[in-house]
């Protein structure tokens, strides 16, 4: 038991990095999701095609491969990211691609009568999207975003493989210096990850429950 208590404070600096990576990549993923999601429903076929290629590219290969590509292969083109930035960019682009599907699905789920009504009211395309479609689509997206945020947290552990000293990496260092700590270290790692995930889980459950509440059925 003593080992477990010993380990916890030494893991905390790593947990801070993990949360930083999580927040930064969540912000990037959110922006990317809207840009790509709106691109997928654009009226210009070229925009639709480009965003579709982007989404398929990032959904069709694994996150770890993308992370390694950004960290190890991009320097060949003279672009050298720090481990932190490489992690944030890879996570943001990967989960942004997944989240863009949520955005696209939600926009398409808004009844077409809403679009027709706003055309009848002589609204511009941008007005229609901003005032009519997005406010209704946004609440449909929320449960999906909740789930993706948990996936994103799990994905952040991969940055330890490009030597960023996140929670997982800290745990590996402790385990390497004291092999008798092997069991306590990995148990504590799982527990700390779960504690970080807990607010996200509760939020996701809540969003899911609220999603169907108070929405007028067409």
């Amino acid at each position: 038991m003593e080992a477990y208590i010993n380990i916890l404070p030494r893991l905390l600096p790593g947990a801070v990095i993990t949360v930083q990576v999580l927040l930064a990549s969540a912000a990037l993923a959110f922006v990317v999701a809207f840009v790509a999601g709106l691109g997928r429903v654009s009226k210009y076929s070229i925009v639709r095609k480009i965003t579709a290629v982007y989404v398929e590219l990032f959904r069709g290969t694994s996150l770890l491969v993308q992370l390694f590509w950004i960290y190890f292969a991009l320097p060949a083109f003279g672009i050298q990211f720090s481990p932190f930035l490489a992690g944030v960019v890879a996570l943001g682009l990967n989960y942004g691609a997944y989240a863009s599907e949520v955005v696209r699905g939600a926009i398409l789920a808004v009844p077409s009568g809403q679009t027709e009504a706003s055309i009848a009211l002589n609204m511009s395309n941008w007005q229609r999207m901003r005032l009519i479609i997005l406010p209704q689509a946004f609440r449909i997206m929320l449960p999906g975003f909740g789930n993706i945020s948990i996936e994103l947290l799990k994905g952040t552990s991969l940055v330890s493989l490009i030597t960023l000293t996140d929670l997982t990496y800290k745990g590996l260092i402790i385990q390497n210096t004291n092999l008798s700590y092997t069991m306590p270290v990995f148990v504590m790692l799982l527990v700390v990850y779960f504690i970080i995930a807990l607010p996200l889980i509760i939020l996701a459950k809540k969003l899911e429950k609220n999603a169907s509440r108070g929405v007028a059925k067409a």
């Binding site: 947290l153 799990k154 990850y193």
Partner: peptide, 13 residues
């Protein structure tokens, strides 16, 4: 628990 903790850490475990 298993769903919300990273598979990488589970693998190490």
């Amino acid at each position: 628990f298993v769903r919300s903790t990273p598979p990488l850490v589970q693998l190490f475990f």
